[in-house]
Design a protein around this nucleic acid. Structure first.
Lengths: 138, 138
DNA sequence: TGTAGTGTCTCTAGTGACTAGAGGTTCAAG
DNA sequence: CTTGAACCTCTAGTCACTAGAGACACTACA
């Protein structure tokens, strides 16, 4: 049996976050000592590792709830779980696309001041003030 | 002079967001009608456009505050403004890097169920439960 | 057995950048 | 002069935590 601090060390999830997951219903309520402290078993540890891994991959608490729900129904879990993962993947790809566009514009903006013969106005500030200066869409 | 709704349409910033920016000190308090409604001039419009553009590029409210501060001191604003933009750029690049790693793993995970001869366990759920299945670091 | 020090408990409030809603007032068009 | 949209302030909610207060529990050592 692990204390909450022990669990925290093993999973690298902070103590208040563990309590938060419990409150959100991601973790079932563990046993308690006589003094009301939480004591976890291996199942609790595995469940938390699952949550941690999914969070690291950017799944929302809600999506993780669904995945956990699915774990209880092995009959038709696979397609549904794959759907969630695929949807997460398309989110990630959309974010990457957007960030690439931002990267381009930021490169352009932050290079503006380096050249010679630059006017006294700051190119960064001017670029932000005047959208017409953008060469890329965003 | 524009009403807040007019300003909202022209900048595509929602009305409550404009009031929020005012509260955060990004926008100075505009004139008011006798009936206490906000009335903006062209300077207000330009300021809000600047903020909108910077937000679209992912600058935080705090960073935008600094940029606005710098606009008032043209003498040494350029280097400082460029620094902020460069720092924003490196944030963006770090995010892209991380998202690419996530993308790889999600592709791997969500393909797991497609092949033939897959066991009855769901590969998505198994992958999330067991970090050892990861081939990529994240 | 006593005690010191660390860990844990609950509860509330704060973060960032908004968004939603209640309940009331003002403006502009017809 | 009336109607209805736009506006006002204020509070609370979002997401996924994080921080802090004040009190209680556990463990190691004397």
């Amino acid at each position: 049996m692990f204390s909450i601090g022990e669990l925290s060390k093993r999973t690298e999830v902070k103590v208040p976050t563990i309590r938060y997951y419990e409150e959100m219903g991601l973790l079932s309520e563990p046993e308690r000592t006589e003094g009301n402290q939480r004591r976890y078993d291996v199942a609790g540890l595995e469940r938390l590792s699952f949550i941690k891994h999914a969070r690291d991959l950017g799944f929302s608490i809600e999506a993780i709830s669904e995945l956990i729900e699915l774990q209880g129904h092995p009959d038709r879990s696979c397609q549904a779980a794959t759907d969630i993962a695929v949807s997460q993947l398309s989110d990630v790809r959309a974010k990457i696309k957007r960030l690439r566009a931002l990267e381009k514009e930021l490169v352009r903006i932050s290079k503006g001041c380096d050249g010679e013969g630059v006017s006294q106005d700051c190119y960064v500030l001017a670029s932000l003030a005047d959208h017409e200066l953008c060469r890329h869409e965003h």
